[in-house]
Design a protein around this nucleic acid. Sequence first.
DNA 1: AATCATTATGTTACCGGTAACATATTTAAA
DNA 2: TTTAAATATGTTACCGGTAACATAATGATT
Lengths: 334, 334
Amino acid sequence: MKLTIQDIAKKAEVSKMTVSRVLSGKGHVKKETAERIQNIIRELNYEPNFIARSLSSKQSMILGVIIFKTPTSIIDEYVAQVFSGIVDNSEIQQYRIMVLPVDRDGGDENEYLKIARTNMLDGLIFIRSRINDPKLDALAKSGFPFVLVNFKKFSPHYNFVDTENYKGAVLAMEHLINRGYKKIVFLSGNLFETNARDRFKAYQDTLKKYDLEYNEGWVVPTEFDEDDAYLKTEQLLKCDHRPTAIFAASDYIAIGAMRRIREMGLTIPNDIAIIGFDDIELASHIQPKLTTVRQPLHELGQNAGQILLDIITGKRKGPVHKMLKTTLIERESC
Amino acid sequence: MKLTIQDIAKKAEVSKMTVSRVLSGKGHVKKETAERIQNIIRELNYEPNFIARSLSSKQSMILGVIIFKTPTSIIDEYVAQVFSGIVDNSEIQQYRIMVLPVDRDGGDENEYLKIARTNMLDGLIFIRSRINDPKLDALAKSGFPFVLVNFKKFSPHYNFVDTENYKGAVLAMEHLINRGYKKIVFLSGNLFETNARDRFKAYQDTLKKYDLEYNEGWVVPTEFDEDDAYLKTEQLLKCDHRPTAIFAASDYIAIGAMRRIREMGLTIPNDIAIIGFDDIELASHIQPKLTTVRQPLHELGQNAGQILLDIITGKRKGPVHKMLKTTLIERESC
DNA sequence: AATCATTATGTTACCGGTAACATATTTAAA
DNA sequence: TTTAAATATGTTACCGGTAACATAATGATT
């Protein structure tokens, strides 16, 4: 029923190896023969069987993207943008992208390794990994090609693309300080993400540098989502010295906090200022427009794809550690 | 180097067929033997080769999701939510999801068919197809399993999940009318999407039913995105009888229009009211909060996945045409 | 004890390509 | 003209599983 390479070969009166050569463009085939074969292929609408090719060549031409499941939609804007970046990379066109939703805490230590061992993938990209994920180390030991997005670990077994979170966070803090805000609190996001750690460090360092008050209670860990930030914001605003500004580790966190602030009858930025991080679409649409530090999410994805390809094809060997710039986007919230 | 079923078989002193039976759970294997094999599998961390399995069984256990490329991010919130729905379907867990970005107008007529013929996929889901896409018909003729999301075509060769766009649009229109708005214009979205057509029909019918003014110039075709709507809104507001309300065929369209309206110094809803469609995240965050008609995007995705599975496994045969409900979400914009 | 159904396991062939090696033909170089 | 290099094609084996059929062992039924 379905056409195989053998059918094409028979019709062209050659061996299937010659057809295979025409298909892959490797090896030598006489021009006329190649054209004859190509015409037959076109005429019969033959498409090679990807699976058979993969089995034989030991390359699936598929890249996997690991996305962690969340209680809500597993693809928020952050993931969507990074993902779009991966897909948009023109060199990646010959590869297919498979989405692999994974439970953060489920599965055994070899979960990623097992995914790699199924032979279905040539490489993996991780979006939003955490530093305490033991499954990652098991994979790293195996030598299977993978790249982490927005995760920093200067190890020879890890490839990553990250943004300059520390510098970006300093930008945010100095912006607040320049505007005269002194009592600055930090909604940290999940501190198992290296992003959050870097931003936290910058928060502390910058406060110290400018000789400003630092208070244990002023660092509030949250998840990287709106609802959790909404809940955690209340305690911040009720404490003794009410802060005058909030540095939120992400825009979603900032937006959750803003909702709570508004509900408490306070205004932004008059009663309390706020600055976010990421610059997602929402940031420029919300009222007041959110001042934030932009991460180039799309580029992050593009780079991750490119690095993975270079590693798979052997173009690059050593561990690749790439950092992209962050920029301050001034709007209305501070 | 890499472990194969043969290695397991040898170690367990059985044929590889017995191991295969243990892996698939099909056929009969003595309890003790099965346990012995399973222990060895666990001990050696063996993972079956997915590719080899696919070639032999003629099932890839992969579903493809066709997403159309756009000038901006290919995954907007609409796509992200539908996609999340597909992935979240618990029964789909045994399947993997592949993302296939496609140029709307590129490729030949058999583009989808060719994708199907690579044998890499067991079925396809299309997000945001258009009625004038000839590539779809070529695929339909082949009998390859596929499901369309948010696309309506009552043909025996098409399976789809759609929302009740017509009813939803009537809800929107009647809401405006009940509030006393009489001069209502329509930003239609792309009329090659059946969604837009249904909403357009409802717009016309409802105007007629309530005996309201209908004006050719009051229907403005747009793309389903913010920027295009922003551009097209100007002409609407400059025409002779300025409308008092806008029915936008999607939230992104509404948001683009709102931006333009605000820039022209008009206020919403006092000078002009607006209602959207979809209920994306932005709708409830923007100022004023956007009144809209909610489409259950996540459920749309879940259903699409389920229907596709049922078709692949033979649980359902005939064409599946499913409609989900839409609901009015009242907020501040009208 | 004989017969049949069920369970347990093995054998063989094949899925549809490509790698690796072999061979024939053509072209270039000595 | 001879020889080496490059081009053109074919042959064989194999990638790692599963389907289909065959056979052996066990259990149930008469």
